[in-house]
């Protein structure tokens, strides 16, 4: 998978490149709109990560030209502005998704995965990690032979974690996707931590192998291996 990242801030660009390469993507970097445009015309990419505030040609302009040329690659925009108008402008200009800076890297990875997989979402009714099994139809959770009773919220939380198995999930992702809280000024970090702790008490505490791990400063991961 080839990804082009157009981002003028060198440190951020480098971090993105390294992080994405770690996930086995091929990454090209462009620091200006012109460079990025040149690369877009000469190479074949599967995804474009585009910063909106660029020197020279700005992101929206590039986005519009890309769409005018009928290039159909998915575009994820990064922006420091998160007013509704800015989002609408970005999406109207042909972006497929946006992330507001500062964003959590796991969230970027998750969004990229969704964009690259778009159209072939696999419908599963069973989620599993080691011997932890979740039946989405019967709404039942088992660890080995033991039934685990979860509240609605805990169930949703576990479902989300299992869907992103072996990937780090940030608090922002949980806030927007599980708690449906889009306002970043509403502090629900404590709430998330409490629910994670409860979930851990139910699915991990009685068992020897721990599945739900906290990655300090980043988020949570459900995985057989400790990160």
């Amino acid at each position: 998978m080839n990804i082009l990242v157009i981002e003028d801030e060198h440190k951020v660009a480098q971090a993105l490149k390294e992080g994405l390469e770690h996930e086995n993507y091929n990454v090209d970097l462009a620091h200006t709109g012109e460079d990025g445009f040149f690369l877009l015309n000469s190479e074949q990419y599967d995804l474009l990560v585009l910063d909106l505030m660029l020197p020279g040609r700005d992101g929206i302009e590039i986005l519009k030209t890309v769409r005018k040329k009928k290039l159909s690659l998915p575009v994820l925009i990064l922006t420091a502005r998160d007013t509704v108008e800015d989002r609408v402008l970005g999406l109207d200009s042909g972006a497929d998704d946006y992330l507001v800076k500062p964003f959590a890297f796991p969230e970027l990875l998750a969004r990229i995965r969704v964009l690259l997989r778009r159209g072939r979402e696999n419908q599963t009714f069973q989620l599993q990690c080691a011997n932890l099994k979740m039946d989405l139809i019967k709404r039942k959770v088992k660890r080995g032979e033991n039934d685990i009773i979860l509240t609605l919220r805990e169930f949703d939380l576990l479902k989300y974690l299992l869907r992103h198995q072996d990937q780090i999930v940030s608090r922002e992702m949980l806030a927007t996707d599980v708690w449906k809280e889009t306002n970043r000024a509403t502090p629900i970090d404590n709430l998330i931590d409490v629910h994670i702790a409860r979930l851990r008490r139910k699915i991990d505490d009685p068992f020897e192998i721990k599945l739900l791990h906290t990655v300090r400063g980043v988020g949570f991961i459900i995985s057989e291996e400790s990160p």
Partner: peptide
């Protein structure tokens, strides 16, 4: 150390 720095970064972001 990095985790701890990220936690502070999170406070800043908030």
């Amino acid at each position: 150390i990095i985790g701890s720095m990220l936690e502070e970064n999170r406070r800043l972001t908030h």
